[in-house]
Design a protein around this nucleic acid. Sequence first.
DNA 1: TCCTAAATATGACTAATATCATGTTTTATA
DNA 2: TATAAAACATGATATTAGTCATATTTAGGA
Lengths: 143, 143
Amino acid sequence: MLSNSSKYALKAVLYLAVHSSMEKKILAKDISEPINVPRAYIAKILQELSRHNMVSSMRGPGGGFYLNEENKKTLLFDIINLIDGDNRLTSCVLSLHKCDNENPCPMHHLVDDTKASFVKKLKETSVEDLTSEIRSGKSFLPI
Amino acid sequence: MLSNSSKYALKAVLYLAVHSSMEKKILAKDISEPINVPRAYIAKILQELSRHNMVSSMRGPGGGFYLNEENKKTLLFDIINLIDGDNRLTSCVLSLHKCDNENPCPMHHLVDDTKASFVKKLKETSVEDLTSEIRSGKSFLPI
DNA sequence: TCCTAAATATGACTAATATCATGTTTTATA
DNA sequence: TATAAAACATGATATTAGTCATATTTAGGA
């Protein structure tokens, strides 16, 4: 469904969303431990996210990663697309190029609506939206 | 979502379902071409399916692969599980081990019902079911 | 019974993904 | 302005998924 990398990206961003702010930046190594992702690896992913304006960062002493207000509005869909590539989510289940509603593959009807609704949700849910859920104790971000 | 291998497996089985019978066995190489999967690779997958009774085969001259009536009742879920391993379909989106309905991860609610309905469909759909769809021209199995 | 055609088994190779390591640049502070 | 702490960039390694090749076994037909 999702690559490890994009799962890591989501976990890191959600962690930042809950624990960081402009005044409280967090080091890569202090993100890696609680979300249980290798330090150097999450650093690399954070840099990619930073380059595309999905997380904010500051170099030097007192620096680190954090989310600004704009970052928090990032859609889950955009994070996944950045890390996993454009069409991992939307391509045919059997990877048939010609598959569409006019020329459906044998599994098309079986998965089309569930997939569409999944993608729809990813497109209408922002980091911010999930954050409030976590804050209110409706969901958790453990290992 | 699904690994290439299990997509290949599904395509091969569906191809056999439509084109083969006990009297009309098909060679691995004559399956590989129409479904656009490397010959040696699909052979390997077919052997795995054969070992687990999801396709039938016969060695020697005039041999090949085919589906018997029992094979056709195989559920899509079983094929995917065999190739991709038990919990690829059912595990948490973020790969959190502790994630369940009592302890949902932040994305749990977002994906739970769509995933459940997807798995449900895979569990209640057999190869046979899809075959009739293909035969009646409601869906297609091209490249 | 010998030859050939097929699946089967096994292992080697390749490519993609994931992980690690090292050096460079930026920024704050003394 | 020197030093240290951090992100950033790049490339190397390891692991896994996917692909290929070769040898073995089985079955049918001459």
